[in-house]
Write a protein that binds this DNA or RNA. Sequence first.
DNA 1: CTTCCTCTTTAGCCTTTTCAAAACTTTCAT
DNA 2: ATGAAAGTTTTGAAAAGGCTAAAGAGGAAG
Lengths: 233, 233
Amino acid sequence: MPTSTVENYVKNIYTEQLASHPRPVPMGRIASLLNVVPGTATTMVKSLAASGLVTYKPRVGVHLTERGEKLALTMLRKHRLVEVFLVKIMGYDWSEIHDDAERLEHAVSEKMLDSMDRLCGYPEFDPHGDPIPSASGKVAIRSLRSLNTCTVGALVVVARLLNQETTFLQFANAQGLKPGTHLTITQRIPSADALSLKLENTGQVVVLGSKVAESILVEDLEGHHQPLADADR
Amino acid sequence: MPTSTVENYVKNIYTEQLASHPRPVPMGRIASLLNVVPGTATTMVKSLAASGLVTYKPRVGVHLTERGEKLALTMLRKHRLVEVFLVKIMGYDWSEIHDDAERLEHAVSEKMLDSMDRLCGYPEFDPHGDPIPSASGKVAIRSLRSLNTCTVGALVVVARLLNQETTFLQFANAQGLKPGTHLTITQRIPSADALSLKLENTGQVVVLGSKVAESILVEDLEGHHQPLADADR
DNA sequence: CTTCCTCTTTAGCCTTTTCAAAACTTTCAT
DNA sequence: ATGAAAGTTTTGAAAAGGCTAAAGAGGAAG
């Protein structure tokens, strides 16, 4: 059985690999994701390579092997299912689930996972809008766009929050911006690098910096479909 | 924060201390409870003593300090509350909760524990009938007697199973012997060292060896109250 | 009062995971 | 092309837990 340290390395390499795509994941990235000094990452990655979870090219970077990817998907499934469970069953607020999920994901058995899945109604997405891999390792793909790429006047629904930091999540939560929220882009203020939105249900107006808007992914609600940039992978 | 290894040592020393009472817990006992060689137990106990969780007299044994006892009660509370949770919320059978509880107890936060407590209706006993320490560390005391000490004809209710082994639990479960089961002692067969019982609700007759009967604690249902031996602490 | 036998401790090693600091490689700009 | 900056790897050490094997202590039994 892999230790929880190994599980964390593999999970983080997986999500990073999605972003850095054909290029391998560099050591520095791994070190900072896992909050260790670079030397530690080198040592660990060599041992991951020795157990056949990654391929490692010195001074270049890391790629998950098939086995590594499978383990990563299992961990992602556990993590995200635990998150849903904490919100739907345990009564957590969706902005405060991350830390507990991070610990629990290493302690839940397959049996426990099945129970959680059933109790939550076999969800496809976690409370941040991240897709939950199926037991067989399949991940639902949606074509979402960043709020940043939307034209003024567009009616969209929030689908996914990319930034998992507690402070960001609490901010988004306080503004009423969570997956499922319908909103219209009312104004773009280039001088302030900002975006103004109106929430459909409450009518509340929210102004966001483009940095924030970038990590909020939405889905178009009307037949607009004007492509401004690529926000997918 | 204590590691889960430390948590396990302290928890096991606590329950063992209840049994060996005024005498300190010997090293050999600790080693076998934790499935390690004696030398390992010695090393760990010395480090527990250094962190102020136990007092250790070489070649004699170990006693929990106040701090150690507090930690032990916290772990016992976590373990037993998790067990209730697995049965009442997650749909586990009460005979198969031990292993998962053993892993989860080290991963649940205070917040999670509170949620579980609320969801389960603030239970006082776990599915085996073991008392759940309160958040402040108080343990409910019941005066129970072993099934072995009951007279023929007595009507009793099963209150607690002392043996936590899966095989024993599955056997008890299959026989319908779980906390809450009402039964009458119908016969005592000294030649076979056995005891015959009739379950009140199903009418099923069960024959137990005295070894098994010893680890089943019951509560008298009628005003019989004939003390045969001591089964408390 | 020795001699065993049992239990406990010591000693020496191993594995994981981490850190700090030194020693490279690459890359990039001049 | 060269020399510094940036990113990586090595080296040496430490903490936590565990094991094996040898050595010690103490009580029971002759």
